[in-house]
Structure formats: C-alpha cells, structure tokens
C-alpha cells in the first residue's frame, strides 16, 4: 500500500510538471507551426510572468487572482511586442537570422531580468495550500489546479483553432502563407494573434509553475523552455494534442527518473529522448510528416 501511494504521488508530481511543460509546448508548437520559428524567447516569457506574479503578490500585496491576471497580461503583451519589434522585420530573411534573433531576445530577457531583479532566486510562500486526501494517498490542491487548468486550456485552444474564424485563419497561414494572404487573410494580424495566444499560455504556465515551486529566478525559463520544446517535438510539432501528450510524457519521465534516484541525470535523459525522437520519428508521435521547405 505504501509503495502504491508513493507511485501515485510520483505520477501526480509528473503530471503536474508535465502540465506546465504542455502549456509551454503548446506555445512553441503554435508559433513553429505558423512561421516555422523556433521561438527561443518563449521560455523566458514564463520567467517574466513568474516575476510579475511574484512581485504583484509580495511587494504590492495584490489578490492572487489579480496577480495571475496581471502575469498573463504582461507576458502576452511582451510576446506580441517581441514579435512586432524583432520578428516582423525578419519575416522574409533567412531562417538562420530569425533563429539567431530569437536566441538574442532570449538572452536579452534573461540578462535584463538579472539586471532588474538580481541574479538570486526569489522565494515566496506558496499561495495555494492544502491537500486533498484520497484514502491513503494525498494530492495537493496545487497539483490538482495545475492539471485541471492545463486540460481546460488545451480543450479551449482546440475549440478556438477548430471553430473560430481566427483559428481558421491560423490554420490557413500555417499551411500556405502566400495563398492565405491572397484569400484576404491579414498576415500580420494572424501571426500577432498566434503569438498572443502562445504567450498567454506561457503566462498561465508561469503561474502554474509558481503554484508548484514558489520561486522565480532570471534563468528559470531557459531550461523549462528547452524541455517544453522537447515535449513539443516529442508530441509532434504543430499538433495541439501532441504538445499536451509530449508535455505529460516528459513530466512523467522526469518523475520516473527522479524516483529511480537519478535526478541528477534528469536533463540528460530528456535530451536523450529528444535525440531518439528526432532520429527515429522526426515528425513526433502525433505530427504529420511535413517535408522541409527548401
């Protein structure tokens, strides 16, 4: 029984971390799907969101709900701003330039945060407390909220992409940018909207991250972002359920590796999975095989 409840709590831990990865992976996947850009700065939006929520709650003593809304708002605004300033001028440039720009923006956000907030890790009291007891096993409310929110976000996103007009425009642009433009779809609007949605998801992810580990540091986003990217590739880039599946798989895998006493090897294992996926099935689990554009 003891063994079972341990396994259960590890699975919950894995799902909780996986939810955050999944939300971030969704953002990666959407942006990659539409302009084929590996948005390195995406992970750092999480860092910005986390700092926003952190300061809203500790320095300004705002209500958690207000802080959460603020965090989502600011990361969304920043995501769109970055797209407008840095990525739009490069839309017709070689992909390499775009990728290097994204790396530069990521670097800029990280070092800017370090300058403004300091290099140290800032910790706060957890703002979601309490556990739910189910027989022998316990689930923290934080984990419960995290998993629920991410599932809701995924369902909402799927509905939006499938049913709304903007979602249709997004799918059209990702399929063929030129043809979509000829059909009267505003490229700028659609791409900005994609960035806004992706960044909002990163904002939600940042708040959920804070639920799980109530601390913020300037470099927290880079590793999180990279792992989320691995999740997106694993699930199949450009696919919403794929990103979700990839995120949960990576979370569970990490929990498994940690439970096996190899937590030091966690990062290595995640990247090993990435390499295996890229070599064996580059389209990912649920992705369609798209030939690379020349």
């Amino acid at each position: 029984m003891n063994w079972l409840s341990l396994a259960f709590s590890q699975i919950v831990n894995g799902l909780q971390a996986g939810s955050v990865y999944a939300l971030v992976a969704l953002g990666y996947s959407m942006v990659y799907g539409i302009i084929l850009l590996l948005n390195f700065a995406h992970g750092d939006l999480i860092m910005v969101g986390a700092y926003t929520a952190f300061y809203a709650m500790t320095a300004f003593h705002l209500h958690p709900v207000v802080s959460v809304a603020l965090a989502i708002l600011i990361s969304t605004a920043l995501g769109v701003l970055v797209e407008k300033i840095a990525y739009t001028p490069l839309r017709s440039a070689p992909r390499l330039s775009l990728l290097i720009t994204a790396i530069g923006i990521s670097f800029l956000l990280e070092n800017g945060a370090q300058l403004i907030f300091g290099a140290d890790t800032k910790s706060m009291d957890p703002f979601v407390r309490g556990v739910l007891t189910l027989g022998n096993a316990t689930v923290s409310y934080a984990a419960l909220i995290t998993i629920l929110v991410s599932v809701i976000a995924m369902v909402g996103l799927t509905l939006m992409v499938k049913k709304t007009k903007l979602g249709k425009a997004m799918r059209a642009v990702s399929e063929d940018m030129g043809a979509a433009q000829l059909m009267g779809i505003s490229l700028n609007k659609t791409i900005s909207f994609t960035f806004a949605v992706g960044s909002a998801l990163a904002g939600i992810g940042s708040v959920l991250y804070l639920c799980a580990y109530p601390q913020a540091s300037p470099t927290m986003g880079s590793m999180l972002g990279l792992k989320a990217f691995v999740a997106a590739v694993l699930g199949g880039i450009g696919s919403i359920p794929g990103a979700m599946l990839g995120g949960f798989s990576i979370g569970l895998l990490e929990a498994l590796v940690s439970a096996g006493g190899l937590s030091e090897w966690k990062d290595g294992v995640v990247f090993a999975v990435l390499i295996v996926v890229l070599l064996v099935k580059p389209a990912g689990i649920l992705g369609k095989k798209i030939p690379e554009k020349l």
Partner: peptide, 13 residues
C-alpha cells in the same frame, strides 16, 4: 550581457 544580446538582435535586423 544586455548590450551583447541587444547587439545580436539589432545586427540581425
């Protein structure tokens, strides 16, 4: 480092 990354971005643009 801020200047470094800023130069990288501006250079690309």
């Amino acid at each position: 480092m801020v200047a470094y990354s800023l130069i990288l971005v501006l250079m690309m643009i």
